[in-house]
Design a protein around this nucleic acid. Structure first.
Lengths: 247, 247
DNA sequence: ATCCATTAAAATCTCGAGAAAAGATATTGA
DNA sequence: TCAATATCTTTTCTCGAGATTTTAATGGAT
């Protein structure tokens, strides 16, 4: 069987239970914008879409509440977390604080295993970015996954489980905003060059330089969104307006 | 009616649903050590203790997983999160990073409302600490709650919802370790003096000094635990060994 | 015409029973 | 006696129906 390594392109663990499976699907759909910000999440409608029971879907929803991707208040059901420019600013700045610190630790403590994992992740990301310029766009799931794995690999040698955990939460929050922004206005950045510089600095063990590059890299998306038209957060993504999930 | 303000001594919002109620109770019991680290959490036994249905308790347990107070893997049920010296070190250091940053922001941005809330919280904490030296000990729920509110009040003016959210998670993690350490060895610190210094620095708007005091304040508990007997994390708290919840 | 109270509808929250999986025990063979 | 297998018990996970609460609609009064 040619089943090399199914985990290479999947940062999420294989779901061991229906709740986990629904949780992961739901999370993907929220981050991808299939479920629009602020949208009401009715259990009765969603349970059919994800092929699970009502109770099971409820548990998955509850799990997303602590990830701050879903909000709930009392007995008024669930909604996709709303978005705002202030919220994204907060997420981005906090992410800079945590991710640069984790990167510094990782660079100073990482061994050969860490280096190898970073090299591999960067290689896979580069390949995806080559394809990107030709046919696909930045909404590609493949690119996003490899980008995510690259960022995680960079800080993987940080001994702080807490930092790595918070980084994951903030990354997926930021990813939601990044995707939303692409619907309105394509970006004009040489993302690959940024990744290349980050990679070089990390491998040469220049912690300060790497942290600086990472900071700029993260902040660049914030700048792009801050200069968008004022109605950015009011209107929904055009091609999703008639999505079959919107009830 | 003499119902002044029931929220003064309750940082948690009033539970609007059974799940929330069970969640808060469960969290308190885990932090307090009533449910010991690593202990198996059987739904069938716990649902009677907390007077809710099996499904409801399950949802509450799931909520605690994202707070990292409970762990679960596949279909093997739930356990109270285990503890370790490395874990506490990580929590403490990350807490220093986040809470000092939030404090700096809060000091530079806080207005009169923030000042008033800090003054009030400090006053209530001081009163509890006066009583403390006489009859009660540091395991007092009242003292803990007021300590928590004081720390939250200090950083309340930070515009970063994310920082405040992470601070809450880390605080409750640290609180679990602090309580556990008290069973083995009473502390010998003038905590009130530390709080007084922190309060003075914050109110005089000296962000650097306040951050420095806060850092030392948080790290001091880590130092205390690091110098404890080696069996600290193996043995359970003595007076809880025959708790009725241990099955 | 606007506002409030009452009523009807919809959705949510809660619960216990059945299905699936893990763990424990006993049995068989070497 | 030990190891491996098979069976049985226990625990967890899943599901749909009933009870509560919220939301919308209707009718009447100011």
């Amino acid at each position: 069987m040619p089943n090399i390594d199914p985990t290479q392109d999947r940062p999420d663990p294989e779901p061991k239970t229906l709740v986990e499976g629904a949780y992961q699907q739901l999370r993907r759909d929220i981050i991808a914008g299939v479920l629009a910000p602020g949208q009401k999440l009715r259990v009765e409608h969603l349970k059919d879409r994800y092929n699970v029971g009502a109770g099971t879907l409820r548990e998955a929803l509850l799990l997303l509440v602590t990830d701050t991707l879903v909000v709930t208040q009392g007995q008024r059901g669930f909604n996709v977390a709303p978005i705002s420019i202030e919220d994204f600013k907060d997420i981005t700045q906090t992410r800079v604080l945590l991710e640069t610190e984790a990167l510094r630790q990782s660079i100073s403590l990482g061994g050969e295993d860490w280096e190898a994992a970073v090299v591999a992740a960067f290689h896979r990301l580069s390949r995806a970015e080559q394809r990107l310029n030709k046919e696909e766009d930045m909404l590609s799931d493949e690119w996003e996954m490899r980008n995510r794995i690259f960022h995680e690999a960079l800080i993987a040698a940080s001994p702080s489980r807490t930092l790595r955990h918070f980084q994951q939460i903030l990354y997926q929050q930021a990813e939601r905003y990044r995707r939303l922004s692409l619907f309105k206005q394509p970006i004009s950045r040489d993302v690959h060059a940024e990744h290349q510089a980050l990679f070089d600095a990390a491998l040469s063990r220049d912690a300060s330089l790497a942290a600086s590059i990472l900071r700029d890299h993260i902040l660049r998306t914030l700048n792009a969104i801050e200069h968008m038209p004022a109605d950015f957060f009011t209107g929904a993504p055009a091609h999703l307006d008639s999505g079959q999930l919107v009830t």
